[in-house]
């Protein structure tokens, strides 16, 4: 056997072994493990560390009327500390400067505040029972935003997962299909007893999701419409959240994502300081 042939066979053999190992490794991942990896990766506005994102919501109501909102999301997520998220309303003009602050300690409900510039007052949003309301009329609840899509607090993933191909744009991705079931203690407060997630196998990006309501009907569908790169990670650039029952939908576009040049000041996430924050200053961050 010629050396070149031996070499080629060795490379193929190693490649096969690596492939087999990686296949084995993937097969051994369970549903809960995949969910954990997804949450480590972070969802919308949920990346670890300090992050500034400009996000646009294109909303189509069930009446087929459209509305567009633009926001600046400023988040700070660090292990062992509460997740902090400040949302500044940029457009439309009549709500420009409105601020929404969420501080969510781990395994607890988020504390929420709202600053209305027209009134010059900060109010705590006290709604301890259900936080499933629509965020700015979108198909997204502000609980989803505040929690960064941390489903593990309310759901348990089935151990067994299946695999499927999912197309995003022109490209096809291999995914795990996870089934999440609501935890007993959260049955009363969660609208969806069952959710399904299609998770990309290598980077654990959620490409698709389905939520089934209490009558076991598919109600909400989440789809990644475009993927992009941020710090070498694949992240969704554009996602669609659609209510299949009433036909309403929200397209969320991530216009920019960046790390702040300077560490974010702590008082940015202080409810008492909200009225001192100026939208133009926040946009300059």
């Amino acid at each position: 056997m010629r050396p070149i042939t031996k070499c080629a066979l060795a490379v193929i053999g190693v490649a096969l072994l690596v492939g087999a190992w990686s296949l084995y490794g993937q097969q051994t991942l369970t549903g809960p493990q995949i969910l954990q990896r997804v949450e480590e990766k972070g969802g919308i506005g949920g990346l670890e560390g300090e992050l500034i994102s400009d996000i646009k919501f294109d909303i189509v109501g069930k009446d087929k009327k459209t509305a567009t909102n633009e926001f600046r999301f400023i988040s700070k997520r660090k292990k062992g500390e509460p997740d902090r998220l400040l949302v500044a309303f940029v457009k439309p003009d009549d709500v420009r400067g409105t601020l929404f602050l969420s501080i969510k300690p781990e395994n607890k409900d988020a504390d929420l505040w709202l600053y209305l510039p027209a009134l010059g007052a900060v109010k705590q949003l006290v709604n301890t029972q259900e936080r499933k309301g629509s965020f700015a009329g979108s198909n997204l609840s502000f609980e989803d935003l505040g929690s960064g899509f941390k489903y593990s607090e309310s759901y348990t993933a089935d151990e067994k997962v299946t695999e499927e191909k999912v197309k995003v744009g022109d490209k096809e991705y291999s995914t795990y299909v996870l089934t999440l079931r609501v935890k007993k203690e959260k049955e009363r407060t969660e609208d969806y007893p069952v959710r399904k997630m299609w998770v990309e196998k290598t980077e654990f990006v959620v490409l698709k999701g389905e939520a089934y309501n209490k009558t076991n009907k598919l109600e909400t569908v989440f789809e990644a419409l475009a993927l992009g790169k941020f710090e070498n990670d694949t992240v969704p650039d554009r996602v669609l959240i659609r209510n299949v029952l009433d036909g309403s939908q929200t397209t969320i576009s991530f216009v920019t994502r960046k790390r702040p040049a300077q560490p974010l000041p702590e008082n940015l996430f202080d409810p008492n300081n909200l009225k001192n924050l100026k939208i133009d200053d926040l946009l300059r961050l």
């Binding site: 309303f89 439309p92 709202l114 309301g133 965020f135």
Partner: peptide, 12 residues
């Protein structure tokens, strides 16, 4: 506008 935003924000 902001009052209505507040209402919808709270799930109204």
């Amino acid at each position: 506008a902001q009052l209505l935003l507040l209402f919808t924000f709270q799930g109204g």
